[in-house]
């Protein structure tokens, strides 16, 4: 772990947070019949898969889960070198009249979610769109809020939040450390 970095959530705490979100989703959507989970690459995708499994365990029903890449809808494409695209996988059955729950690792400026909403509009017409995030670190730049939050983490702009997941990084953790130059790849902490 680099100097000045500390773990805010460990693997067990991430699990507990996700389990709680799974229950909240079921509660808010009255059983989750119409729910489709869409993870935003890169780390939102394994989180959406985990939520789908947790919901399945509680309610004994499969929940469609997929991924939604927002690269082509970003508002900062011109100010950075060209980005590689992530995967978009819409579960069979589509999004029309579904309750789409967008899943991402960190909610920061809100710009990723804005792009995701635009992308959704081109893919279908969900009945409702909700947002689930593992960490809300504040500093919104757009009028956007999350419906389900794993952990509210008040941060300063001089800090960075890093989410590590078993599927992508080999272990589970949420780290808080000193700011680093904004990465040029998509996903991460916005």
């Amino acid at each position: 772990m680099p100097e000045g970095t500390r773990a805010v959530l460990d693997g067990n705490e991430i699990n507990r947070a996700l389990t709680r979100i799974a229950h909240e989703v079921l509660e808010r959507t009255k059983g989750g019949q119409e729910v489709t989970l869409l993870g935003i690459p890169s780390r939102g995708v394994p989180l959406a898969q985990r939520l789908a499994r947790l919901i399945e365990r509680v309610e004994d029903r499969t929940v469609p889960a997929g991924s939604l890449d927002i690269t082509m809808y970003r508002d900062d494409l011109r100010s950075a070198p060209v980005r590689a695209l992530g995967r978009t996988e819409i579960p069979t059955g589509g999004l029309d009249d579904r309750v789409v729950v967008l899943v991402d690792d960190v909610l920061f400026s809100g710009r990723t979610v804005r792009a995701a909403l635009d992308a959704l509009g081109d893919l279908g017409r969900p009945r409702a769109v909700q947002l689930a995030v593992l960490v809300d670190r504040g500093h919104r730049e757009l009028p956007i809020r999350a419906d389900y939050v794993g952990k509210n983490l008040p941060t300063s702009l001089r800090e960075s939040v890093t989410v590590r997941l078993d599927e992508t990084d080999g272990h589970d953790a949420v780290l808080l450390g000193p700011a680093r130059p904004r990465p040029s790849t998509s996903g991460g902490n916005d």
Binding site: M72, Y73, L77, D118, G121, D122, L123, G124
Partner: peptide
């Protein structure tokens, strides 16, 4: 294959 065959990029 989508209903809106357009991206704003």
């Amino acid at each position: 294959d989508r209903s809106v065959k357009k991206l704003p990029t």
